[in-house]
Nucleic acid binder design. Structure first.
Lengths: 128, 128
DNA sequence: AAATTGGTTTACGTAAAAGTCAATTTTTCG
DNA sequence: CGAAAAATTGACTTTTACGTAAACCAATTT
């Protein structure tokens, strides 16, 4: 396994800009090492970036992503906080299930759109 | 079936603001009737709003939603346009499938988070 | 008549998540 | 070593999807 990745290496791999990765660092989502001022990303940082981008794709805000990351690093120590967190996790799950249903519905709809297109193409093809 | 819905009726049903519905009209997504200046929404408008909000939940932009709606109203008449549209539909489907996978992965991860919370709760419970 | 309710337009404001630009470093490598 | 390439910082800008405020109208209700 590789020891370090440069910032551009990762931007190429994930299709994001350097600005984006620095932004994530500013936001406290990642903490790459430094050699001088230059950032050195380790495999763990890379994995974290993958997670962040996954969260982004499904519409999580930076704050939400940060929150999930925090829990891994160190789950809250106070009972009230823990329970609140669990409630939020539960809500998130409901939201995601809804979203999955929306996606399935939309996929079906896109099938219809495609069919409409094919029909239209056939019509035109016949007409000429 | 009801003939007309008022704007606030629909905002209550869908949990959006009047501003949002007017915005959608400005953007050409819906075209409610008018009695004088007042908007009258018919069941078809209501159904469309549902679709719009579904698109929104899964992260479609207004432009993308508008495009899908357009196709229903009238698929493009030119072959090149049609093929382009179909290509875009195909891309959208890939994107949605990816998103669904992201959601499944994240759901699994949230299960872990919940477990971590429960474990932590148990620890605290024992310690006191 | 006054007040309330529900609706309208217009215009400006804003938050999130980067993009862009410019001015320095820093690193790399022939 | 020294120039080109890569990286950094900081400030400013942009885009999307509305929020908010002001000022108005029209139809009840009190």
């Amino acid at each position: 396994m590789k020891k370090y990745y440069s910032i551009t290496e990762l931007t190429r791999e994930f299709g994001v800009s350097t600005r984006t990765l620095r932004f994530y660092e500013d936001e406290g989502l990642i903490h790459p090492e430094r050699r001088g001022r230059t950032r050195l990303f380790r495999p763990a940082d890379r994995a974290l970036i993958q997670e962040i981008l996954r969260g982004r794709r499904i519409g999580f805000t930076i704050a939400e992503i940060r929150e999930i990351i925090q829990v891994y690093k160190e789950p809250p120590g106070e009972v009230g906080q823990l329970k609140l967190l669990m409630k939020r996790v539960d809500e998130k799950r409901d939201e995601l299930r809804q979203k999955r249903k929306d996606i399935d519905d939309t996929l079906a709809e896109l099938d219809n759109v495609e069919e409409a297109c094919l029909t239209r193409l056939a019509e035109i093809g016949v007409g000429t």
